[in-house]
Amino acid sequence: MTALLEVTGVGKRFGGFVALDGINLSVPAGERIGLIGPNGSGKSTLVNCICGTLTNEVGQVTFDGKHLNGLSAHARTHAGLARSFQLPRPFASMSVADNLRVPLMFTVNARPGTHLSAAELDARCAELLTLVALDHKAHRFPRDLTQVEMRKLELARAMAADPKLLIADEAMAGLSNSEVTDIVALLIRLNERGITIILIEHIMRAVMSFSQRLVVLVSGKKIADGKPEDVIREPEVERAYLGQ
C-alpha cells in the first residue's frame, strides 16, 4: 500500500544553519502520528515544508500520489493537506463563522465537482462550530475568544477545508489539563471520521494518549520512529530530552 504522505530526503537550511537534514517519513492513511522533539529541532520547519509555507531545497514531498514540490501553499490545501498554526492566526476582521467560511469557499468549492450553495455553506459552518463547541460564539470576533477557543477555531478552520491529512502544530501549548483532554478527544474524533492526523506537541501526556506512532526529531534529524512506548525508551530519545 502506498502511503498518503511520503517525505523523502527533505532538507532545508537557513543560511549556514541546517534546519532539516534528509528527513524521511511515510504516513499511511488513517494513522495518528505524534511528532516530538526539543525546541528548535525542526518540527515546524518540516510542517512548513510539507505545507508549502517554506520550500525545501532538497528532497521530495508526495501527497496522495502527487508530487508537491513547487506547488504553492493554497494548491496543497486544495489537494487535501490542512494545517493549524502554532500561534493561532485567525482572520481578525471576520466573525468566527466567516473564518470557517473562507476555506469552505476557497478550498471545498474550488474542488472540481463540488459547489456549495449559500445555505449549504451556512450549514457546514454551523456543523463545524458544533463539532468544536463554538456554536454559541459564531457571530463574535476572534478578539472575543479565550485561548482555548482560539485553538479550537484554528482546528475548525483547518477542518473546514475537508482535508485528508491534518497537521496540528502545537494545538495545545499553554492550555490547562482539562482543556488538553478536550482537544485530544476532539482530534481522536476527527481521526475516527477518517482523517489522518500528525500532531506536533510538547505535552507528553497528550502525545502518548493520542499517537499510534511516534516520530522524534532532534536538530533536524529523525532519530526515532515507531510505537510510542518503545520510542520513549530509546536511549537516544531520553538523551535528547533529559540530557546526560
Binding site: T53, A73, H74, F91, V102, F106, T107, A161
Partner: peptide, 8 residues
C-alpha cells in the same frame, strides 16, 4: 499565510 493555508 493563514489565507494560503485556507486555500486562498
Amino acid at each position: 499565510q493563514a489565507a494560503e493555508a485556507s486555500g486562498v
